[in-house]
């Protein structure tokens, strides 16, 4: 997660307007999911992957590895669609298993494959957004969309303090390890519980100190800040709109053919 965050800040597409990026990612995702076609999913994967890796400069190997976890879940869950257990050998391929049969349906393979591709396509849209757009820029988009202020403020504080608390937890863990805090299972459990308690106490203390610091800068119940973000150039808007139009066209065409 920390790595994803770092990549977003160093992405080549970072200074493209976040509104354009969010629009592209969300619209493509919706198209990909509603079309539910292998062709559209493959195009989505290729375009989003290409943008993230070539334009954004994400490491290709790391990018591919990112798909491992969603892929694992997808394979596991589609397994149940493809394979079924019944008393009769229903399909052409059926493995006898005691009194029952493990059956594989041919069209279920196609269905499962399609499902996996659609899901991966959707994931690629989200990866595109999270690997090219820092969270601070996403908050700007939420602000423009008139997301409730309290939500945006919470996200802003949570995002900042994830890192502060993460650093704190890492420092405590290191100091515990250097004192043999994890020499066996029992001690590591003990050390872990100590670390979590400490983290909670310090988080509470920090929140008080932060509140003081904010108050001393005339905080009045609402976090007012300047929002700075790259402006959308006409070229970016046109390109994003054209891409979505083409995708929509392909969707409609495919529907007509089938």
């Amino acid at each position: 997660m920390i790595m994803l965050d770092k990549m977003a800040y160093s992405s080549g597409l970072r200074y493209i307007s976040p509104c354009v990026k969010a629009f592209t990612a969300v619209t493509t995702l919706l198209l990909c999911v509603t079309a539910h076609s292998a062709v559209i999913s493959l195009i989505t994967l290729a375009v989003m992957g290409g943008l993230t890796v070539y334009k954004g400069g994400a490491c290709p190997l790391y990018y591919i590895r990112l798909y491992r976890i969603p892929l694992l879940f997808l394979v596991l869950s589609t397994f149940t669609i493809v394979v079924s257990i019944s008393k009769e050998p229903l399909s052409e391929v059926a493995l006898p298993l005691f009194r029952y049969y493990l059956t594989f349906k041919g069209d279920a393979f196609y269905f499962a494959g399609n499902l996996i591709l659609t899901a991966l396509g959707a994931v690629s849209c989200l990866y595109f957004l999270s690997l090219t757009t820092p969270v601070t820029d996403l908050l700007y988009v939420l602000d423009i969309l008139h997301c409730p202020g309290i939500l945006v403020e919470l996200l802003l504080l949570v995002y900042r303090f994830i890192f502060v608390l993460y650093d704190m937890a890492a420092a405590i863990t290191v100091s515990q390890k250097s004192r043999l805090g994890n020499k066996d299972f029992k001690t590591s459990l003990h050390a872990m519980s100590g670390m979590l308690v400490m983290l909670l106490i310090r988080a509470l203390k920090k929140s008080n100190l932060l509140y003081d610091a904010m108050e001393s800068r005339c905080y009045n119940g609402k976090i007012l800040v300047l929002r700075e973000s790259a402006r959308a150039s006409r070229k970016e808007i046109v390109m994003a709109a054209a891409f979505e139009a083409v995708m929509l066209g392909i969707c409609l065409l495919l529907r007509r053919i089938s």
Binding site: P134, V135, T136, L156, L157, Y159, R160, F163, V164, K206, L209, L210, A213, M214, S216, R217, C218, Y219, N220, I223, L224, V225, L226, R227, E228
Partner: peptide, 26 residues
């Protein structure tokens, strides 16, 4: 104005620009 000892207790935003603008906007 007070500049606190530990900046991690003072900086509340991940964005430098937003952070600096806070007091001024208030």
């Amino acid at each position: 104005g007070i500049v606190f000892q530990d900046p991690d207790n003072q900086l509340f935003s991940a964005s430098v620009y937003q952070e600096i603008s806070f007091g001024l906007m208030n």
